[in-house]
Design a protein around this nucleic acid. Structure first.
Lengths: 356, 356
DNA sequence: ACGCGCTCCGTAAACGTTTACGATACTATG
DNA sequence: CATAGTATCGTAAACGTTTACGGAGCGCGT
């Protein structure tokens, strides 16, 4: 206003420079906090940029310095995922951003289309050089994406451990701990015939979960019965199906471990249709808690964690493996399992102990 | 292989050109499908690019032609949203992508951090020129983002109608239709005292929903009672709270319209604690269906739509307003309401009709 | 022989930044 | 006063791509 200049839409750093009557080099240095610029001119530049609404064009910047200041989070919104992911990713995103924003990094989510191969999609995104680093999720038991990213020299971290022995940063929920704790608890209550539901063993989660279950049984000297392992989708529908299959067994289990509490809704419905009350006639424990667990009747016993903090951990692990940021996270462990906490409900049937 | 060349990591179009012994101009034209290039050389170029894994650097491309081939979907993962959005956005994303992929457009999700003002965030993203167009969601009753995008000349479409009279492309769920249908149905069953729950009236949804409710009542000659309008979060917790407040009324309603079926879980829990059975003692209708509606007991009466197709509609509306694509969507209506379908359950108490 | 149109391709400029390098002015030191 | 050092700034190259422009070669009709 004091210049009488109309704040027309800023075109580029060049216009900003000639508006200030300084060279564009100085303007750039001023904006980027470089040391060799007079403090007073820096103030002028910043003020003018603010007033005229100038923000550096990202394409020009990344073309020059080969960096985008953007981290990508790849998610596969597959049918399977859409039904079970719930708000998991949005919550993780919050945790990631709370860390990234301190480093002026922006997070974008890259949703792989249903009909595109995740590997090809990632390849495309990586080649486009649109992100500086990647976070991948829903890791498979054999996941070619690890090699792809390593070869392309793109820093990355995974939400989900690696089973193929490749060395890279990851964090993962403590499936082993959860399933062990669940089995211990159920056994302590007198249960010997315990069913489990899990997704396909191609998915990391599906594999590890059942593996942990098998080991826990072994520890208690209980025989492993494949009929008690139900592969199902992690949705209400899946829970309904699990109950259905278990009811059809001639030798029914007295307890069941579900993966997602979402499944419990369908499971409850199906067993109640058969006159079976969770917590009285069958024990139910669920792996991951969502807010609705406590609204089920009877309240679901499940395992809880802060998904937000999981995002924080994931972000720190990623940054600690990026040369440009690693010194700010010294000695950070790059492969961690994330603990969960037991939230007791009424569904795991304490009183069965007495009956058995 | 026939060349004996090792497929080292491709640096740029220049290396690809000299590998083929053609000029980079021709290579670029060949890759981009320009007409003035021999079909046979085009084949050679495409083959080499495929073999060497060359993909154009996005920064260089967008710097030159001022376009990124990326559409941004802004979401506010506010606390409120995280709890109620469920998988809504991921499903919408699927619909969007099914359209965009036909035009070789990529979709990225831009999650606004909790602690950043959505307006400032959008401003930042727009100025960075990282996307060609934007889709914004969760529109407010007065939303400065419309002006921002219009001034920046960024094509955009909104998921959520405009109430401020600004002219821009949008689609929106048919709140009016839903709430009218719900009220009609409840009134036909003999209800006169009907409660409604909605988010804050600052949110488009909250405002329109209650407005439609008020008009529907008026149409039936029923007095509007502000005590029956409960502003609550769209979560299980919110549903619990709604039930709680309604139970405390001296003159209780006989029916309630909930916004999200997620709320029904909490609502069911609370009223059942008081010995009240939905569908017998109180009628419950919900606005938006998710898979779990049918697993509730008694099954929830609610309104359903294909969220995927909603995404398709939104994508087409956006593209039809972009000069580069508009001719492929001739005569497309740019402002539409999206209908929903009634899914009858057992929760809206048909038999109350006889009693009243 | 000449001109014209057509097909195909090479050249070089341009997009908006950042940054290495050198230039200038000033200060301190001998 | 000469010199070195320091603070500040301007210049220009570079990043990888697209595209306007023009040129070469060719066929064809006059």
């Amino acid at each position: 206003m004091e210049h009488g200049g109309k704040p027309r839409p800023m075109k580029g750093i060049r216009q900003l420079a000639e508006h200030l009557d300084i060279s564009i080099g100085t303007v750039s240095r001023a904006l980027n906090g470089k040391p060799d610029v007079n403090e007073e001119t820096r103030k002028r530049v910043l003020a003018a940029a603010e007033q005229l609404g100038y923000v550096a064009n990202q394409s020009g910047r990344s073309l020059r310095q080969g960096t985008t200041n953007v981290i990508g989070l790849m998610i596969q919104s597959s049918r399977e995922t859409v039904e079970n992911s719930d708000n998991f990713f949005l919550t993780v995103t919050g945790g990631l951003q709370s860390v990234f924003s301190r480093h002026k990094l922006d997070l974008i989510m890259l949703p792989c289309p249903h009909d595109e191969d995740p590997y090809e999609y990632l390849k495309r995104m990586v080649a486009r050089r649109i992100v500086d680093a990647m976070i991948i999720s829903e890791t498979q038991r054999v996941d070619k994406r690890f090699d792809l990213l390593a070869k392309a020299k793109i820093p990355f971290a995974a939400l989900g451990r690696s089973l193929s022995g490749t060395q890279h940063p990851w964090t993962d929920l403590d499936f082993d701990g959860v399933v062990n704790c669940a089995v211990d608890r159920l056994v302590a209550h007198g249960h010997r015939r315990i069913a489990v539901s899990a997704p396909s063993s191609d998915i990391n989660l599906g594999f590890i979960f059942v593996e942990g279950y098998r080991q826990a049984l072994e520890r208690h000297g209980i025989a492993y019965d494949p009929a008690l392992v139900i592969r199902a989708k992690s949705s209400e529908q899946g829970g309904y199906q699990v109950a259905d299959e278990l009811l059809n067994l001639e030798n029914r289990p007295t307890a069941v471990i579900l993966i997602y509490e979402l499944m419990a809704i369908g499971f409850y419905r199906r067993v109640m249709e058969a006159g079976i009350i969770p917590g009285r006639d069958i024990a139910v424990v669920s792996f991951r808690e969502a807010p609705r667990a406590k609204f089920l009747q009877p309240a679901l016993t499940c395992f809880r964690t802060s998904v937000h903090d999981l995002g924080v951990e994931l972000a720190e692990i990623l940054l600690s493996s990026m040369p440009a940021y690693s010194e700010e996270y010294p000695g950070k462990t790059r492969q961690t399992v994330w603990p969960l906490e037991l939230i007791p409900g009424e569904s795991d049937a304490f009183h069965l102990k007495a009956e058995t």
